[in-house]
Nucleic acid binder design. Structure first.
Lengths: 121, 121
DNA sequence: GATTTTAAGTTACTTTTGGTAACTCAAAGG
DNA sequence: CCTTTGAGTTACCAAAAGTAACTTAAAATC
């Protein structure tokens, strides 16, 4: 029995699940990757660059990332409002791991699509 | 504008999203990590080691992983039935990336918990 | 000076995904 | 003949994600 499995069994306090439950949602990883490329972005810029996320889901996603200390939110007291987002130190430290995942995805997507087709999607 | 963002914008065929939409669900990464440690496991062994997944969700998760060619399913024609699961080559090639993510999670969990507490969870 | 535009959200509502509990199947054991 | 066993289904209920319309206050347009 490996170390990871033992941690999992005490599932109350399992770090991996605590973290993955959050960034394992539909949009978080995407936001982190985008902010990793663009440094600083405003709300609408982010939304356009994701191109199919709703305002509500972007708000929810950013608030979660903010509360985990992965993304920083800076409000300018202007009208119309201006809010800028960027990765925190912690968010930046997560980037390479997500990049290695997305590199894997790019390399394996053809094989995966073929598998899905065989099994009737 | 980086390469990744351009790929995202053509979101129909984006490899990263196609893959993450699947393994970004609640249980897939967990199953992959466990099968990475135990080599071969039966359905009920998997369920016990996850400790709070329902039969239905384990079935659904395994079927998706199978159809992506990440997990192999071997049925023994016995009664009561016996079904053994293990990672495929492709599944094994994904393991190190998931491990690096979970190492990050372990290192950062304390800081993340502190952030969450500050923001009122 | 009334109307529209603008950025960054809310709110109320619908649809999809996840979760629970009970049921199935066919043979072996008591 | 009734229960147990492993690997699931099925029918049902709750939670998360998605949609469309609304909000807010100033500045720009008519």
């Amino acid at each position: 029995m490996g170390k990871i499995l033992e941690i999992y069994r005490s599932s109350e306090n399992c770090p991996i699940r605590t973290v993955l439950d959050r960034i394992g949602d539909k949009w978080s990883i995407l936001v982190i990757l985008i902010l990793g490329e663009e440094e600083t972005m405003r709300f609408n810029e982010l939304q356009k660059s994701m191109n199919d996320i709703s305002q509500k889901m972007l708000t929810v996603t950013l608030r979660k990332l903010e509360s985990d200390g992965l993304v920083h939110r800076r409000i300018f007291p202007e009208i119309p409002p201006r809010v800028e987002y960027n990765l925190t130190e912690r968010g930046i430290s997560l980037l390479p791991h997500i990049h290695s995942l997305s590199d894997w995805a790019t390399k394996n997507i053809d094989g995966i699509r073929r598998s899905r087709a065989k099994s009737g999607n």
